[in-house]
Simulated assay, not measured.
Amino acid sequence: MYIGYARVSTQDQNLDLQIAALKEAECKKIYEDQLSGLRADRPGLQNALDQLREGDTFVVWKLDRLGRSVKGLIDFVSVLEEKKVHFKSLTDHIDTSTPMGRFFFHIMASMAQMERDLIAERTRAGLDAARQRGKVGGRKRQMTPSKIESAKKLLANGIPPKEVANNLGVSIPTLYRWVPAQKT
């Protein structure tokens, strides 16, 4: 029997494409999760695993629906192999019921890991290059040096912190982060 599994990372993403593909692949049961692949506690995945019996095939739309690391994917497929359950990824054209399919799975999992590593490496390099050019990442600071000076003067003159924060257009916690209470 084919048992399918579909996953998206967030509640606003849609499972329809994956479910349609799994139905077309003749999955008798389809389990789903709407949470990050990094989480180990995925109820839909656990329910699917509980249903698998010897000779069944566990089907996903794409490898990355299962996990993010090569080790995690290989460990997962190894658990399936121990249960004598096959694995099939529809878009990656992997079917571990054949020796070539098992080999191809390991190659594809390694390439997926390499792609994620390259993306992370390029992101770090881009951030480093931006820092060297004087760019600072993140949100723009609410408290400029002139606002900090104004806040210090207003607080020193006895103006209540709530009023100072309102005048500067910041919250009280932001005001205190830049002008600690004991220095007023």
Rank of each mutant, 00 (worst) to 15 (best):
Gly4Asn: 10
Gly4Gln: 11
Gly4Ser: 12
Ser9Lys: 13
Ser9Thr: 15
Gln11Leu: 15
Gln11Ser: 15
Asp12Met: 13
Asn14Phe: 06
Leu15Lys: 13
Leu15Ala: 13
Asp16Asn: 13
Ile19Glu: 14
Ala20Met: 12
Ala20Leu: 11
Ala21Gly: 10
Lys23Cys: 12
Lys23Thr: 14
Ala25Glu: 12
Cys27Glu: 06
Cys27Phe: 14
Lys28Gly: 09
Lys28Cys: 08
Lys28Asn: 12
Lys28Ile: 15
Lys28Leu: 14
Ile30Trp: 07
Ile30Val: 08
Tyr31Gln: 03
Glu32His: 14
Gln34Asn: 13
Gln34Leu: 15
Gln34Trp: 10
Leu35Lys: 10
Leu38Gln: 14
Ala40Asp: 06
Asp41Leu: 04
Pro43Leu: 12
Gln46Cys: 02
Asn47Thr: 04
Ala48His: 07
Asp50Val: 10
Arg53Met: 11
Glu54His: 08
Gly55Arg: 05
Asp56Leu: 06
Phe58Val: 02
Val59Glu: 00
Val59Ala: 03
Val60Thr: 03
Val60Gln: 00
Val60Trp: 01
Lys62Tyr: 08
Leu63Thr: 00
Asp64Leu: 05
Arg65Asp: 10
Arg65Thr: 02
Arg65Gly: 06
Leu66Met: 06
Leu66Ile: 13
Gly67Lys: 00
Gly67Ile: 01
Gly67Gln: 00
Ser69Met: 05
Gly72Pro: 00
Leu73Trp: 08
Leu73Gly: 03
Ile74Asp: 07
Phe76Glu: 02
Ser78Val: 00
Ser78Asn: 11
Leu80Asn: 03
Glu81Ser: 11
Glu82Ala: 11
Glu82Leu: 06
Lys83Ser: 10
Lys84Tyr: 04
Val85Arg: 02
His86Trp: 11
Lys88Ser: 03
Leu90Thr: 02
Thr91Cys: 03
Thr91Ala: 10
Asp92Tyr: 01
His93Cys: 06
His93Trp: 09
His93Leu: 09
Ile94Asp: 00
Asp95Trp: 07
Thr96Asp: 04
Ser97Tyr: 07
Ser97Ile: 01
Ser97Glu: 08
Pro99Val: 04
Met100Lys: 07
Gly101Leu: 03
Gly101Arg: 03
Phe103Val: 01
Phe105Ile: 00
His106Cys: 04
Ala112Phe: 05
Met114Val: 06
Arg116Asp: 07
Asp117His: 05
Asp117Thr: 02
Asp117Ser: 12
Ile119His: 06
Ala120Arg: 14
Glu121Asp: 15
Glu121Ser: 14
Arg122Tyr: 11
Ala125Gln: 14
Gly126Met: 02
Ala130Arg: 15
Arg133Asn: 11
Val136Glu: 13
Arg139Pro: 04
Arg139Met: 07
Thr144Asn: 07
Thr144Ala: 06
Lys147Met: 12
Lys147Arg: 15
Ile148Gln: 08
Ile148Tyr: 06
Ile148Pro: 05
Ile148Ala: 09
Ser150Gln: 14
Ser150His: 10
Ser150Tyr: 01
Ala151Leu: 02
Ala151Asn: 04
Leu154Lys: 04
Gly158Pro: 05
Ile159Val: 15
Ile159Asn: 05
Pro160Asn: 08
Pro160Lys: 13
Val164Asn: 01
Asn166Lys: 15
Asn166Met: 08
Asn166Thr: 12
Asn167His: 12
Asn167Thr: 11
Ile172Val: 15
Pro173Gln: 06
Leu175Arg: 02
Leu175Ile: 01
Tyr176Ser: 04
Arg177Thr: 05
Arg177Gly: 03
Gln182His: 14
Gln182Tyr: 14
Thr184Glu: 07
